[in-house]
Nucleic acid binder design. Structure first.
Length: 788
DNA sequence: GTTTAGGGTTCG
């Protein structure tokens, strides 16, 4: 450990020098003495540039003054350093210090030196010997450093004593200066404060579940943390903790330093920092990984990011984009023309500016005229906006997509404003080209076919000229598809969109609003999407075919001959035989109510020995039909692979696993009610049947340009506004569903021409012994009114 | 000398 920084606190070194070395004063230095276990201490009064000797060895010279010997005529001595020690010390002394210079001289202790006659003593008037130090000679240099110096030097690969300790956010105490890690829950990108510095406000959380809002100032934009999104992980060194309004608050202290990491689990761990070198050890990688995993399940990072194609009117969103043009507008606003390769589906405003005020490549501005968004930035954002370089990549936070009033002369359009102030992190951040999202955006921008957008314009002009109705119709149809979503949310309207990639990179369970296109779905044969679901055991099964039912009916042919068996208090039975050769017997039991037979539409029948056809015929005339068979103990339900009840067009089934059928006599309790409703749920309950529900089960593959995501639709009737229970027996409903799916996912259409869907989805975990998977399910979403 | 801001959307 040849060069070590000693941390100074209130002018005293926090760690003392090793006890085996003793101090030696300047006037006691004698040639030929062994100084292996001695040290000389002084302040640096002069240092020379680092040079190389003829053999390539680094060489560095400083002059130390012995303060304890100030009365002496000769009070300073040359120190010659060789090798890595020379390099390290010169780094500490000569590196650029990014904050205000201090007037505290550097204080060095040089141990294990060699005392050699100085060839220059006659010229420089210093001690007639000099000190020689190098790693090879077993020397050590201790540098007394206050916190600012340590901040500047921590990034050198030399050790600072003591090692950094990190305080968790629930352990912070008023008046301390600490090091900490945290996950960004909220941030304001650096902005120009009303004072002399840039300001950035950052709220951190950590697994202790405490929260800390930090107010960071710096005159140097680069020394503020480079946070790009909520969920980023930061390491702060030397942040001062104060109490403010009853809460702990972090504030920059002298020597504040930070590292920022992408918070995505699995993303490469590359610190973002203004320092060229920094301390970073294996243990810290572990901490960052742990924080990422914790954040993934404890922090909602579904921010308001959006592409221009996904812009919601009336909402605020964050846009990652490239600057194409900029212009001054007036004293309080400034125009940024940006693009992200997608087209806003709504008409957007164009801010008029003097041509000579517009900066940017003219050709490119013209080429991209249909793809650029005009963003007007106000007040405090102007200064930063003016300084932006054309072509740079930006993230603009909390842009307001404002719907202009319809009576505007340009018609209804969307305006993009970056209002004054910094509420909700409103501001502009410049992303470096090395940022992975910038790389992705760049690739996408290069792939955009500009000719396509010219075509769109041709179509618009055709429409305006009214030369072709069919083109106009097509266009309006296309517009319908491209503008309004074909599905809408029934709840969660205030939620903002999350892109699919973000969802795929997050842990479950969470809920999201998405805006995406339906690339494909399964099953393509829609009737295969209808299943039976047991809400008790959560099993799904296929709907039995009519053939299964028919087979069961044949097995329940009437065998009893004694008609008196059937005449019980709560129903009347009749039996007749068919006229054909088989002379098949059919028995119908009419359930009585109040001693009287009801109107057929209110009547429940139990039928023995009927065929499928007869069953359906009876269902048309009577309220309910229950297929039964007789046993020695009386009437019983058929096997549960048959429906236990027919009502309207619907066959109701029971779950074989969860049902414990009771004797038919249990129905008498319902019949005794004043006005039996004969609801399937009530009938099922008294008969000990766990009712299976009809449900649409489909897999939707969504795309939004950030990655495909498969989500399950599990819907009784809300999504299609078609009851799953009725679709199998209704040609009309089947056609309706087919048309709906053709609107959501028109066959043979290019991806760009597919309509947008807006959905609410939930992620959830499915774990078993061998694997763990995250699934997604569509909720609280319905097909738009004009699509149905 | 040590402020500035101290999170919680909008004038345009």
């Amino acid at each position: 450990m040849p060069v070590l920084l000693l941390k100074m606190v209130n002018g005293v070194a926090e760690t003392s020098l090793p006890s085996h070395i003793q101090k030696e004063n300047l006037n006691n230095l004698r040639e030929g003495v062994d100084y292996t276990n001695k040290y000389f201490q002084g302040i640096v009064t002069l240092s020379y540039p680092l040079t190389k000797l003829a053999d390539g060895t680094d060489f560095f010279k400083v002059v130390l003054q012995d303060l304890s010997n100030s009365c002496s005529r000769i009070n300073s001595i040359n120190v010659l350093m060789y090798g890595k020690m020379a390099e390290d010390c010169s780094k500490v002394l000569h590196r650029e210090v990014t904050f205000k210079p201090e007037h505290i001289p550097d204080n060095f202790a040089v141990a294990g030196f060699k005392l050699v006659k100085s060839p220059t003593a006659a010229e420089d008037g210093r001690h007639d010997c000099h000190l020689e130090v190098s790693e090879d000679a077993g020397s050590a240099v201790y540098i007394y450093a206050n916190s600012k110096r340590i901040a500047a030097s921590e990034t050198l690969s030399m050790s600072v004593a003591p090692k950094y300790a990190y305080t968790s956010l629930n352990q912070l105490k008023d008046g301390t200066i600490v090091n900490l890690y945290g996950v960004v829950k909220f941030f304001k990108p650096p902005y120009v404060s009303k004072g002399t510095d840039y300001c950035s406000v950052v709220t951190l959380v950590d697994p202790s579940n405490a929260k800390l809002t930090c107010t960071l100032f710096s005159g140097n934009l680069d020394s503020l943390p480079k946070i790009y999104k909520v969920g980023d992980v930061v390491r702060f060194h030397r942040i001062k903790i104060r109490e403010y309004n009853g809460q702990m608050q972090g504030i920059t202290s002298g020597g504040f330093a930070s590292l920022t990491f992408d918070g995505t689990v699995e993303a490469p761990i590359v610190p973002r920092t203004s320092s060229k070198v920094y301390t970073f050890v294996e243990e810290e990688i572990k901490t960052i990984k742990e924080l990422r995993v914790w954040a993934a399940s404890n922090l909602s990072i579904s921010g308001p990011a959006a592409k221009l194609s996904g812009v919601q009117p009336m909402l605020f969103f964050d846009l990652t984009c490239q600057l194409v043009g900029k212009a001054k507008v007036d004293g309080s606003s400034f125009l940024l023309k940006v693009w992200d390769g997608t087209k806003c589906p709504f008409p957007t405003w164009k801010v008029s500016v003097e041509k000579r005020d517009l900066e940017g490549e003219k050709d490119l501005l013209h080429q991209l005229r249909n793809l650029t968004a005009d963003i007007l930035v106000y007040d405090n954002h102007m200064q930063l906006a003016k300084s932006l370089k054309i072509g740079s990549f930006l993230r603009i936070y909390s842009i307001h997509a404002k719907q202009a009033s319809a009576d505007n002369e340009d018609g209804s359009h969307i305006e993009f404003h970056l209002h004054g102030g910094t509420c909700y992190g409103r501001g502009i951040g410049v992303l470096p080209e090395s940022n992975p999202e910038v790389k992705e955006l760049k690739e996408f921008l290069e792939s955009v076919d500009l000719a396509d957008n010219q075509d769109m314009e041709c179509m618009s002009s055709l429409k305006l000229e009214g030369t072709s109705n069919s083109v106009a119709d097509l266009e309006s149809h296309l517009q319908r598809c491209q503008q309004l979503p074909v599905t809408v949310l029934t709840d969660h309207q205030d939620l903002k969109n999350t892109d699919l990639k973000t969802i795929l990179n997050s842990t479950a369970p969470q809920q999201y609003r998405i805006r995406a296109k339906l690339r494909t779905y399964q099953p393509q044969k829609l009737y295969q999407s209808v299943k039976l679901h047991c809400s008790k055991c959560n099993s799904l099964q296929e709907v039995p075919t009519e053939d299964d039912f028919d087979f069961n009916l044949q097995g329940s042919a009437v065998t009893a001959k004694k008609t008196e068996l059937y005449n019980v208090s709560w129903y009347d039975s009749i039996m007749w035989a068919t006229q054909d050769q088989k002379q098949r017997r059919i028995v119908i039991h009419f359930v009585r109510h109040d001693e009287l037979l009801q109107h057929p539409k209110d009547t429940l029948l139990m039928v023995e020995g009927g065929t499928l056809k007869e069953m359906w015929k009876l269902t048309k005339r009577f309220k309910c039909v229950i297929p039964v068979r007789s046993t020695e103990d009386g009437l019983q339900l058929l096997d549960l692979s048959s429906p236990f009840l027919l009502q309207g067009n619907v066959k109701y089934y029971g779950c074989k696993q969860c049902s414990t059928p009771k004797p038919i006599n249990s129905l008498s309790s319902l019949a005794a009610e004043q006005q039996p409703s004969w609801e399937p749920t009530e009938i099922a309950e008294v008969l000990g049947i766990e009712l299976l529900q009809y449900v649409f089960v489909m897999k939707f593959t969504f795309v939004d340009g950030t990655g495909p995501l498969n989500a399950y639709l599990f819907d009784y009737e809300k999504f299609f506004q078609i009851p799953a229970s009725e679709i199998l027996t209704s040609n009309y409903l089947q056609q309706k569903m087919e048309m709906t799916m053709n609107t959501l996912c028109p066959p043979g259409r290019k991806l760009g021409d597919l309509p947008w869907l807006e959905c609410f989805i939930k992620s959830y975990n499915i774990k078993d012994e061998t694997k763990h998977q995250v699934y997604y399910q569509i909720f609280d979403t319905t097909v738009a009114e004009d699509v149905v």
